[in-house]
């Protein structure tokens, strides 16, 4: 057990998985000697060599397309997109092939690849470095879409993603890469893809979030308890596709009030799907309209105005109070 940042925890997942399984190949721009621009793959090339850690030419479709071929052959490539904002240049490879080669070959081939990408705001980055476009991927049949929220679960989910027989999009909240440390066990640990978890139990309302927004959501939940004695239940989705609707539906049946928090734009955002499921499965248990705290339907602003755009604890508390005051 050691205290680790998310970057260190992800690095540990790679080291242990690669040592055990020679089929695991890490590839991407600057993932070798540079260790990745966020250092997630630091030291891997020294430990596993240039055959296992590929510094690729600068071409996202080339990287992902090549990984599709490698995965179909039987390897387990893990591609790094340097920023999720650059992954759109590989979008067609994911949509047309990674997500459907199993179908297109009627099961002869499958694509056990992972596409990792840092996403989201909060690090004062350049343009095209801060979007939260998880729904692009969550909408595609054949893919799985995972977003961890802390070091320990990030490590466990990455191991699961690498072992998964289907392609997994693995969004890493870059605002959390070094934001805090957690105890991470030495022995290998997995967390099942497709499962969410209750990270704070409560009875008065259900707050549903994931990724970098888990911190302000939990902060808001604590503040609501201290200020108003409100007991909020907080759910960390962890997997956006397939969505673990059983967990949040059961919670809302208990609390009767629900809100969704994400930094992605509101319209057609993850909240839209989560709320649809809640309406379908727990409508008669609802005591108030479901609330959303999200990014506006605009391009995320450059960093001088970013903090006004991103949901924070204060905004979440205001919406929670509105939700609680509904008759």
């Amino acid at each position: 057990m050691a205290k680790m940042t998310m970057v260190q925890a992800l690095n540990l997942a790679f080291k242990q998985t690669m040592a055990k399984d020679p089929r695991v190949i890490v590839m991407g721009e600057d993932v070798g000697l540079d260790g990745g621009v966020f250092r997630v793959t630091d030291g891997l090339i020294q430990e596993f060599g240039e055959d296992r850690v590929l510094d690729t030419p600068l071409a996202e479709a080339g990287i992902v397309g090549m990984a599709v071929g490698m995965a179909a052959y039987g390897l387990r490539p893990v591609c790094e997109m340097q920023f999720s904002g650059f992954s759109y240049q590989a979008f067609h490879q994911v949509e047309n092939h990674a997500a459907r080669l199993r179908l297109r070959s009627q099961g002869r081939f499958h694509v056990p690849m992972v596409l990792r990408a840092p996403y989201g705001g909060g690090v004062r980055a350049l343009e095209h470095h801060s979007e939260s476009r998880e729904v692009f991927w969550a909408h595609i049949p054949g893919l799985k879409m995972v977003i961890p929220s802390g070091p320990r679960v990030a490590r466990a989910l990455l191991v699961s993603a690498i072992q998964d027989p289907d392609p997994v999009i693995f969004y890493e909240p870059k605002a959390l890469y070094r934001a805090f440390r957690e105890d991470v066990p030495d022995e290998e640990e997995v967390f099942p893809i497709g499962k969410s978890q209750i990270v704070r139990e409560g009875t008065d309302l259900t707050m549903i979030s994931y990724g970098a927004m888990m911190r302000p959501t939990l902060e808001a939940a604590e503040a609501l308890k201290e200020k108003k004695g409100v007991q909020a239940e907080v759910i960390d989705l962890l997997t956006l596709s397939p969505l673990d609707d059983a967990l949040f539906t059961a919670s809302v049946k208990k609390t009767g009030r629900a809100m969704v928090v994400h930094e992605a734009p509101m319209s057609y955002g993850p909240g839209a799907e989560i709320i649809s499921r809640l309406v379908e499965k727990s409508f008669y248990y609802l005591e108030a309209p479901i609330e959303r705290v999200t990014g506006a339907d605009i391009t995320i602003p450059l960093f001088s105005r970013e903090s006004s755009y991103l949901p924070n604890a204060a905004r979440i508390i205001r919406k929670a109070e509105k939700l609680l005051s509904a008759p």
Binding site: V64, G65, M66, G69, P77, Q93
Partner: peptide
């Protein structure tokens, strides 16, 4: 075409 490169690499 990139798939062929991946197969070739493998």
């Amino acid at each position: 075409l990139p798939h062929a490169v991946g197969l070739g690499w493998a």
